[in-house]
Design a binder for these strands. Sequence first.
DNA 1: TCGATCGGGTGATGGCCATCACATAAATCG
DNA 2: CGATTTATGTGATGGCCATCACCCGATCGA
Lengths: 228, 228
Amino acid sequence: MSKCLSCSQAGKGAFCKFGPQSRAFLQSNSLKTDYVRGSSLFREGDRSNAIFLVCSGKVKVSATSREGRVMILRIAQAGDVLGMSAALTQGDYEVTAEALEPCSVLVLPTKHLMTMLQNFGDASLAAANVLAEDYRAAFDEARLISLPSSPAGRVARLILDWAQDAKSRSNTFITMSMTHEELASMTATTRETITRTLGRLRKDKIIETHGVVLKVLQPQALERLCAC
Amino acid sequence: MSKCLSCSQAGKGAFCKFGPQSRAFLQSNSLKTDYVRGSSLFREGDRSNAIFLVCSGKVKVSATSREGRVMILRIAQAGDVLGMSAALTQGDYEVTAEALEPCSVLVLPTKHLMTMLQNFGDASLAAANVLAEDYRAAFDEARLISLPSSPAGRVARLILDWAQDAKSRSNTFITMSMTHEELASMTATTRETITRTLGRLRKDKIIETHGVVLKVLQPQALERLCAC
DNA sequence: TCGATCGGGTGATGGCCATCACATAAATCG
DNA sequence: CGATTTATGTGATGGCCATCACCCGATCGA
């Protein structure tokens, strides 16, 4: 299996599986850029001019209200592509992408993206897959927020999603390297509620935490809490 | 300008602007189907086997929790395409699509969709645009629910979105043909809260309603309420 | 025409959680 | 190492809203 252009790993991302032609095109028309922790790849409202292929590091994708309330949509990792929707519709970025750790990113300007999509079939298929993933992420977020009736339920839902994710990597532990503040932004609640909810789950022996490691003791209890 | 295959209007949907070849392919491989009010085009969890091009009528797109809590993602109309994401990823439908009025729909089986995407460039571009729209709808929904801190704020946000939409059609009125129950499902709140919130907005002379017609008197007041 | 159903309006109540305030722990940095 | 920032924990309080209960009017179907 061919390796991803720069992830230097057999990437699972849609843009990691290009054939020789599209790969060469991507390589010669994109610019590898490094971002330090805290810097922005692009910001909500900026005119879109490129797509971003994450090669290493973690990128926080979020949207902000005028009041400063933040909604975290997802955490992108190696293999993920950011800014596709805005590039295709020639509009503004609808979200802000910010490096959570030092990141290495391939930046492909929109005009080259367009050329690539027109000339290489595998590239347009990959683009469609990227969009489908973006859609799923947004849909899952909407579902996470809408369906559970209470903040506590949303936290339970989030933990269950993580557990699912961990299990898919045959891992019994969840490594949660996010602050309570960030968790609050993902579940449309406040930091204090996150602290209290996690505390209560611990007290009730439903979860167990050791530093960043989180273990679910009673999945059914979480299911009951979120009820969705 | 060529007319949409079956909308019989200069459709604005991505699939309404096909060239002669892709149009002919679509026509000969899809099945025009009518749905009565209340019937389902497809249901959440069903195996995806086709995409649906709405030619006339309105279709409610929603997701449901096990408890029966409903999240309405959007109301699709003529020109909209449903089920694209599930078809492309060969997965299950993640939402339920239900006819709100008698609907006429073109049903294109997934295998023919795939053939079409591989053979016609304009079709794959259109598919990408459909996905981008789906993404925006889900994102907007997540944003609507996440960012305003209170149910009342979300209702205000929803009305503002409608006003925006109406203004883009140079219309000073909003025609709101949805029940309070449905509004509640769109804003993650309850019917009673919708009734009370609208009542209060009326009392405060912020909005005015006459039957299904709604008029915004003080947009700034709504902005202040939702604060996003 | 008359139930039956549905959409809408309203009161009472109680719990949850947002907000404010402050205290501690941990990490970062000079 | 001290000092400052960041992350977390916790109490008190009050308001909003989910829930339950009921009523009314309109619409629909037989």
